[in-house]
Amino acid sequence: MLATMEIVDILDQSESIGKMVMDSEVMQNYQQAKQELASDPDAQKLIQDFTDMKDQYEDVQRFGRYHPDYSIIMKRVRGVKREMDMHEKVARYKKAEREVQKLLDEISQSVAFSVSEQIKVPRNGMVFTDTGCGCGSGGGCGCAS
């Protein structure tokens, strides 16, 4: 019975943390930036252009430099991405997104370290960034894991 009550208490506390995150200024800024991005037709056009160009990029990537349009597509992709990233609403949204990720990483670290300092926690939105690429293959991909 005690273990069950402990689990219920942990679930209640985790719900409380979740509510605090959702009510935080960081999350409110993120929600506002997301809404502004979704309602801006210019930003949406840039995002759609990038998505279309990304499809072409993925086709070219299958063949690499041997694809006849490799140089052209690579230049276009970089140009379209740069144009999208430079748009004010896209940049604001990405910044707000990074802030939410930072908050979640800090919460994860706080919870993990309250149990043990030896627990590895996600940082910068990636699991175990201090061990290489974080792929989890144990170095099988040739990374520094």
Rank of each mutant, 00 (worst) to 15 (best):
D52I: 03
D52E: 14
D52V: 01
D52W: 01
M53L: 05
M53P: 02
M53I: 04
M53T: 11
K54M: 06
D55R: 06
D55M: 11
D55Y: 08
Q56V: 12
Q56F: 10
Q56N: 12
Q56L: 14
Q56Y: 06
Q56E: 14
Y57G: 05
Y57Q: 12
Y57K: 09
Y57S: 10
Y57M: 14
E58W: 01
E58K: 09
E58V: 00
E58I: 02
D59T: 10
V60R: 03
V60L: 04
V60E: 03
Q61F: 01
Q61C: 07
R62A: 10
R62H: 06
F63L: 12
F63T: 07
F63K: 10
G64P: 02
G64T: 04
R65W: 01
R65H: 07
R65I: 04
R65E: 12
R65P: 00
R65Y: 07
Y66M: 11
Y66K: 11
H67P: 06
H67T: 06
D69M: 13
Y70T: 02
Y70S: 05
Y70P: 00
Y70I: 01
Y70L: 00
Y70D: 02
S71L: 11
S71W: 08
I73K: 04
M74P: 01
M74S: 08
K75S: 11
K75P: 00
R76C: 09
V77L: 15
V77N: 08
V77Q: 11
G79E: 14
G79F: 09
G79Y: 05
G79P: 03
G79N: 13
G79S: 14
V80Q: 02
V80Y: 00
V80T: 05
K81C: 03
K81F: 10
K81A: 09
R82D: 15
R82M: 13
R82T: 13
R82H: 14
R82W: 09
R82L: 13
E83K: 14
E83D: 14
M84K: 06
M84A: 07
D85H: 07
D85P: 02
D85Y: 12
M86F: 13
M86K: 15
M86R: 15
H87P: 01
H87V: 01
H87E: 02
H87C: 04
K89I: 06
K89W: 02
V90F: 07
V90H: 08
V90E: 01
V90A: 09
V90Q: 05
R92N: 13
R92Y: 06
R92S: 14
Y93G: 05
Y93P: 07
Y93I: 00
K94A: 13
K95C: 04
K95T: 12
A96Q: 03
A96M: 06
E97N: 15
R98Y: 10
R98L: 13
E99G: 08
E99H: 13
V100D: 04
V100C: 07
V100N: 03
V100T: 05
Q101A: 12
Q101E: 12
Q101L: 08
Q101N: 11
K102V: 07
K102Q: 14
L103E: 07
L103M: 15
L104V: 15
L104N: 15
L104W: 08
D105S: 10
D105Q: 09
